[in-house]
Design a protein around this nucleic acid. Structure first.
Lengths: 205, 205
DNA sequence: TTAATGAAATGAACGGCGTTCAATGAGAAA
DNA sequence: TTTCTCATTGAACGCCGTTCATTTCATTAA
C-alpha cells in the first residue's frame, strides 16, 4: 500500500529537516554531511535520497522554516509597536531583521548561501514566502505614499529590504565590519529614514 | 640558491592567479579545481601548495586583483564626471559599482563568497583595499557634511556602501529579483539620495 | 501456509574533491 | 665525480555527495 510508504517518507522528511536544521544552526550550512544526517536519523544514506532530490532539497526545506520564522519575527515586532507612524514601523522592521540575523546567524546565512542548479530552480513556496515578507514592508510604504502605484511601491520595498539586508550582511561579516551591533542599528535607521523622506518628496522612483 | 627558487615561485604564483581568475570569471568560484589549475599551468598539483597555503589563498589573490579593478572602476567613473555636486558623485559611484558587478558577475561574487578558516583570517591588504574603496565614498560625504566627525562619516560611508551592495546583490540574484537593470539603478539613486538628504538634516548618525 | 511478486530500503561502491608527504630529481658543494 | 641539500612531484589519503545492484519487506495468489 502506497499510503504507509508515504507516511514513513513524511516522517523521515520531518526528522531529517529537524536534524539538518540543528546542524546548520550550530555548525553552518557547509558542515552539513549526508552520512552524519543518516546516522543521526537512524536511516541509510540512500534513504535521504528517497525523500529529497539531493541535499540542496533538504536545505531548501530548512530554509523554508527559517524564512517563515523570520517573517513571523519581523511582523511580530511591528505588531508589538501598536499604532505608531509608518516610518517607525519600517525602522523597527529593519531592527527586527537585524535581531533575527544576530540570533540565528548560521540559519540566516543559509537562506542566501544555498547553491541551486539552475534547472531545479526556485520552489514556488520560496517566492511566496518572500512575497509575504515584502508585503509586510510594503504596507507602511503605502501609508506614506498613498499616490504611488503598485510598481513604485514594489521598487521602494525591494530597495529598502535590499539596503537593510546589505547593512546586516556586511555588518555581521567579521572580515569587513567590526562594527558593534548598536552602530548597525543606527545605520539601518539612517538609511530607512532617508529612503522614506526621499520617497515622500519625489514620488517618482 | 634561494633566489632562483623564489623567482620561479613568483612566476608560478602569477600564472596560477591568471588561470584561476579566468576560471572564476567563466565558471564561478565553486568550479575551481586544483587538478585543472595544475594541468593548465603545466605543474604538479602539489606545486600549488608550494606557493599558496591552500586554494583559498589563491582565491584571495584573485580577489585582490578584482578588488583593485573594482576600486579603479568606481573612482574612474567619478573622475570622469568632472566637477559636479557630491550627491551626483555618490549616485554615479553606486551605478559604477552595479556596472562592475554586471560586467564581472562571478568575479564580483567571489569577493564575498570565499570561505576563510577563522585562524588564517583576513590578509592585511584586504582591509587596506577596502579602506581605499571606503575613502572614495567618504570624500563626497565629507563635502556634504563638513561638520560631521570622522566616526560619523565612517558610519555613513559603511551604511551607504552596504545599502548599494545589498541592492546590487539581491538585484542580480535571479531567485529573488527578476528586476531589470535600469530599475536597479533607480533603486540605487533612490537610496543614495535619501541617505544624503537625511545625513544633511540630522548630522547625528 | 506457502510461494510468487513487485516495491522499498539499503550501504558498498563510484567518481571526484582538496590536501599531503615519501620518493624523486636537479643543482650546488666538495 | 660524488655527495648532499632541498625543491618538486604525483600517487595516495581521507573525505565528500550520489547511485544502483542487491536485499528486505509487504502484499497478493495459490
Amino acid at each position: 500500500m502506497a499510503k504507509n510508504t508515504e507516511k514513513r517518507h513524511e516522517a523521515l522528511r520531518t526528522t531529517l529537516v529537524e536534524i539538518a536544521e540543528r546542524h546548520v544552526r550550530q555548525e553552518g550550512l557547509s558542515a552539513l554531511r549526508a552520512r552524519k544526517l543518516a546516522a543521526e536519523a537512524g536511516c541509510a544514506v540512500g534513504a535521504i535520497y528517497n525523500v529529497f532530490n539531493d541535499l540542496t532539497g533538504l536545505v531548501l526545506a530548512v530554509n523554508g522554516r527559517t524564512f517563515h520564522r523570520l517573517g513571523a519575527h519581523v511582523s511580530g515586532a511591528v505588531s508589538a509597536l501598536g499604532d505608531v507612524e509608518p516610518t517607525a514601523k519600517l525602522v523597527r522592521m529593519g531592527e527586527a531583521y537585524l535581531g533575527f540575523a544576530v540570533d540565528n546567524p548560521l540559519l540566516w546565512r543559509a537562506l542566501f548561501d544555498v547553491e541551486m542548479s539552475s534547472d531545479t530552480d526556485v520552489p514556488d513556496w520560496y517566492m511566496t514566502e518572500l512575497g509575504q515578507l515584502f508585503a509586510i514592508i510594503a504596507a507602511p510604504l503605502k501609508e506614506l505614499n498613498p499616490v504611488a502605484d503598485a510598481q513604485q511601491i514594489d521598487l521602494m520595498t525591494r530597495a529598502l529590504f535590499s539596503s537593510v539586508h546589505g547593512i546586516v550582511l556586511l555588518g555581521l561579516e567579521r572580515r569587513i565590519s567590526g562594527v558593534p551591533q548598536d552602530r548597525i542599528e543606527h545605520m539601518i535607521g539612517f538609511m530607512v529614514r532617508g529612503a522614506v523622506s526621499n520617497g515622500d518628496a519625489h514620488a517618482k522612483v
